[in-house]
Write a protein that binds this DNA or RNA. Structure first.
Lengths: 223, 223
DNA sequence: CGGTTCGTTGAGATCGGTCAACTCAAGTGG
DNA sequence: CCACTTGAGTTGACCGATCTCAACGAACCG
């Protein structure tokens, strides 16, 4: 469906990334090749064999699945520093796309496994990433049984924790993407953002820039 | 909360289990000790360290989590033959309880890992079980964003597939447990069972015995 | 026989979805 | 520079699916 136009910036550029981002620092990262993806570009497809591990250098990624009736469920969002693409089986059960223009480090799974066999730190890193994946899925399940207000508040808190910024949150994803992640409609997501704003828990500098005024109130609302 | 009164039937009984069930047949199973759990008895608790792998010999098991407001979410049901208790992290993120009186084979994780290091079949078995766990979590996520009708139909189809019985389904769990698994109320679950019965897709011999008359109709309703 | 648990059914309330109008910002092209 | 289009987001009115509350029935157990 989406045209794959990944681009390898070459050695010079790669070195530049290394020095500026400080995200090529691990032994695993040394194996990787940075690639660039445009907004909505597919990184891998549902059902394809698992051949790479990916690390977000900049931008954001979503994993998603299209249901038979056309609804889309978003499985996870991945932010800079996150590893993704590790699945338990041999084939991907979700597809992955760029939420925004992003740079992704692609690491051949084969090479990663070989390295892991020699370097226990790498092995434990891969195990930890898989473990996070499982936790994410469980936490997401728990989110989906809650009310709309609880889901939206929970989403904001999760984003806040992951961005580790004290008060201003820059959401890379659209309302539609948030809705598809939370199992709600864009209208319901929007209404809840507005409700939180009216109760002075947050304020919206723009639709994607959220200032968090009252985190404990959000926690209370997340149940 | 629940009192742990697990009971080891001893060698004679163990041999009896072996010969009658044929579920002590693998090398992994040889490491295990069969235990008996009463209905609602806790097998392990949320937050406890992962020390065993479990295999259901008879009966049924649920994993669950109690939310801050008292709601309970059931993560999975495990039926005879299923392995459970394998989590990606070091600690359990759900608790496990017996849905009905059951016999469980408990295998020390340490021993299982040692065996896996020597026997690639065992290693692949453990990997497969973890992989199933992930798939289960993803499938469950997808179920939770659907309508009540779709969830209930999907649940019945899943149970049918796993029990591999052609037409009559014996549900080991209560309506409350089904509801907590599907993120619905018992009333909604009950109403949907009744609806399926009125449309002649199923009939209820008793509340726990379901005859499936029209599986493709159920599939259609599961979306 | 009460008492208890489990499941079913009905009536009404509520939450979130649907449909539609509107605003706003960012292009695009004359 | 302005008119027009387009896409994202917000808001309102209404509707329907699911929850809540309540009554009732069936099975089980002392």
């Amino acid at each position: 469906m989406l045209h794959h136009t990944a681009y390898n910036p070459g050695p010079a550029n790669r070195f530049a990334l290394h020095s500026t981002l400080g995200q090529f620092d691990g032994p695993l990262e040394m194996l990787g090749t940075p690639m660039r993806f445009a907004r909505n570009e597919e990184i891998y497809g549902d059902g394809e064999p698992v051949e790479y591990i990916y690390k977000v250098l900049s931008g954001a990624v979503r994993t998603s699945k299209i249901l038979s009736d056309g609804r889309r469920q978003i499985g996870s969002f991945y932010l800079p520093g996150d590893l993704f693409g590790l699945e338990a089986g041999n084939d991907h059960t979700f597809s992955a796309e760029a939420v925004a223009e992003c740079r992704i480090l692609m690491i051949k799974l084969r090479s990663a496994r070989e390295l892991a066999a020699r370097d226990p730190n790498v092995a434990s890193l891969l195990w930890t990433a898989t473990s996070f994946e499982m936790e994410r899925a469980h936490a997401h399940m728990l989110l989906l049984i809650k009310t709309a207000q609880e889901r939206v508040a929970g989403f904001l808190l999760d984003m806040l924790k992951r961005s580790k910024n004290t008060s201003t949150l820059h959401l890379p994803m659209s309302r539609r993407e948030i809705a598809d992640y939370l199992g709600l409609t864009i209208e319901t997501v929007s209404r809840n953002f507005s409700m939180f704003e009216r109760s002075h828990s947050i304020s919206l500098r723009s639709s994607r820039q959220v200032e968090i005024h009252n985190r404990s109130e959000l926690k209370r609302m997340a149940a």
